[in-house]
């Protein structure tokens, strides 16, 4: 079975820096309120998503293994 990842954006943490939406527009977009949300909650593994989670200034983005729930990024 192919691995897939869950992307979650904690909107209470998101400050709308727009870093994820600019660096990984395939996976994130900013809403009307300038807060980020993932375009799809479950995605195929992609380093761009990990970079977005690592570079988020408030660690609002969590990437985890869809099958096991293990957090992949940040950390």
């Amino acid at each position: 079975m192919n691995t897939t990842w869950d992307i979650r954006v904690d909107r209470s943490l998101c400050i709308g820096s727009g870093m994820c939406a600019a660096s990984s527009p395939a996976h994130f977009e900013l809403g009307e309120d300038h807060k980020s949300h993932p375009r799809a909650d479950v995605v195929d593994p992609d380093d761009e998503v990990l970079d977005a989670a690592l570079n988020c200034p408030v660690e609002a983005i969590t990437v985890s293994d869809h099958a096991t729930g293990t957090v992949i990024a940040p950390e």
Partner: peptide, 12 residues
């Protein structure tokens, strides 16, 4: 702090 990818690294 500038929005987008160059958002100030030291903002916090």
């Amino acid at each position: 702090f500038g929005p987008g990818i160059h958002h100030c690294l030291g903002a916090q």
